[in-house]
């Protein structure tokens, strides 16, 4: 599902990024790339989303969040990371 529907407090794995070349490239370089675990901090539903990746916190606009595809991960997996 798109990151847009991520629930606050939950962790997810990034599966893929949609969008043009420049788009995924920049996100990749900021550490947002497939295989990475992210945590949704706040999600207002129709506005920007705040996510945690490692120790950085990144604000993503609605347009961005719609193009990042995530998968929920089980609690066991989350603990192991």
């Amino acid at each position: 599902m798109p990151l847009l529907y991520g629930k606050p407090g939950k962790q997810y794995e990034i599966v893929s990024l949609f969008g043009g070349r420049g788009f995924s490239r920049k996100l990749f370089e900021m550490g947002i790339r497939p295989g990475v675990i992210i945590k949704v901090i706040t999600n207002s539903g129709n506005g920007p989303i705040l996510v945690g990746i490692n120790n950085s916190r990144i604000g993503l606009g609605k347009g961005m969040a719609g193009k990042i595809i995530i998968n929920s991960i089980s609690i066991k997996e989350a603990k192991a990371i």
Binding site: I37, K39, I41, T42, G47, G52, N54, N55, R57, I81
Partner: peptide
């Protein structure tokens, strides 16, 4: 070991839950 998401920024996150809240922000 890698720093996990849970560490370091938790206080910051708690503040953010309020300050960047959908209604309150």
């Amino acid at each position: 070991k890698a720093a996990t998401i849970e560490e370091r920024l938790t206080t910051s996150d708690k503040i953010d839950k309020i300050l960047t809240n959908k209604w309150l922000g």
